[in-house]
Design a protein around this nucleic acid. Structure first.
Lengths: 223, 223
DNA sequence: CCCATTAAATGAACATCGTTCATAAAATCG
DNA sequence: CGATTTTATGAACGATGTTCATTTAATGGG
């Protein structure tokens, strides 16, 4: 455990600033989620990790939803950074999509945090702006570019949601779920699923993601 | 309110079966979600609506997650029904995708319910089986067909998640959120988003959905 | 038909959660 | 330094998911 771990009867650390800083609170919340999962993130636990009373948090975050929105916004930091030169628009889209996926993947339950909120902070806005910008350069109308950007983001969120759900299962109950699925897969009833089982139960999420994204990009090229 | 509404001090309705039936419980849970939203679905409220004590529910559902999985499974009933004859494979995919979207849209917070669980029930399985089957008929390998089916489902889930989030906002706080977004959209900082605002704030989710799905289908055709 | 055994529902409790608020402490500044 | 404003405290409230010993209803064999 880190030095800021919740120790019993911890008197306030001496050198630490007394005032509760919002960015530190958000960072600590993300650390707690990484350690114990989103379901274990509690206003009380966050307060304890910050060496503060629960009520104090509500001076800085009106509600837990507000906290989660700030976390989602923080997760996207850097996602809209400048793109390397000399990339084709295909590569630019792949790069941007990969960044968002990685940003969600970087924190445990990151996709759940992101999907459960609706942030309008600068990180979220500039990411969408950058993505729409790249798409507009492919001779797409503003409307088509926007709709395409939404499509890409929705795919990423849906995909990462499932990827992290699988990761959460993997902690203990993956074999049971896998066995349950295999047992339910009667080739007579589900002939196509039987042929698909290897791919369905695969953990090659990188490959799955690339396949889906390339599908969208290819559809874009045919316009 | 329906005749099964929670009335104060309701003695057990006379003609109703004493035993708690699982399908009735699932249906009632979905009705409660439709009425008050997923956040208001409580084991206690469900028990009250079923004229039963809380503990009784735990004899039929090991946990609330189990309940939610049963609800997700129930939502997909009929989604894998036979397709009309004479449809091109493009139309078959559009039909199947539209069915899943409608199934999630039919219940309030349906996408959240579905995304938060991992059902392996017959409705979910046969839907995926049907979708993979259609894709395999387009000369796709089992692996490519499976990955494409996953892509389509992930897009639908991500899209509907956002569509229903907008619906939830619309109940009271839509104007505030919209104004907040508009204020944050400085054309100097986010030139592309400024051009995209009309599309971003549009409520034409049917159009957005069709655009995204057609993109995927077009990418499939270019294979 | 009655009684023993199994299945099901009850009612109360436990720990924990998000949230609120009157009070106290600390920081700020004229 | 003293007054005012900002911030943190500590305790509480109602509600939630879950558990369990007890009671009640259904079931089946003699």
């Amino acid at each position: 455990m880190g030095p800021t771990s919740t120790s019993p009867s911890a008197q306030r650390s001496r050198g630490r600033p007394r005032k509760l800083a919002v960015p530190e609170a958000v960072a600590t919340a993300l650390r707690l989620v990484d350690e114990d999962g989103l379901d274990s993130l509690t206003m009380r636990r966050l307060a304890a990790a910050l060496d503060v009373q629960v009520g104090t948090l509500y001076r800085h975050f009106a509600t837990k939803q507000t906290l989660l929105a700030a976390m989602a916004e923080e997760m996207l930091a850097g996602c809209a950074g400048p793109l390397p030169d000399g990339l084709t628009w295909r590569e630019q889209i792949t790069e941007l999509a990969g960044r968002l996926r990685m940003a969600l993947l970087r924190h445990r339950d990151g996709a759940r945090v992101y999907a459960g909120t609706h942030s309008v902070g600068p990180n979220t806005l500039s990411y969408t702006d950058t993505l729409v910008g790249v798409l507009r350069e492919t001779c797409l109308s503003p409307e088509a570019a926007t709709r395409t950007a939404l499509t890409i983001v929705h795919f990423i969120v849906g995909h990462t949601l499932e990827e992290q759900a699988a990761q959460a299962l993997a902690e203990s109950e993956l074999p049971a779920t896998l066995a349950l699925l295999h047992a339910a897969l009667d080739p007579g009833t589900y002939p196509n699923l039987a042929a698909a089982e290897a791919t369905l139960t695969s953990t090659d999420f990188v490959g799955h993601f690339a396949h889906g994204l390339n599908l969208i990009i290819k559809g874009l090229a045919g316009e």
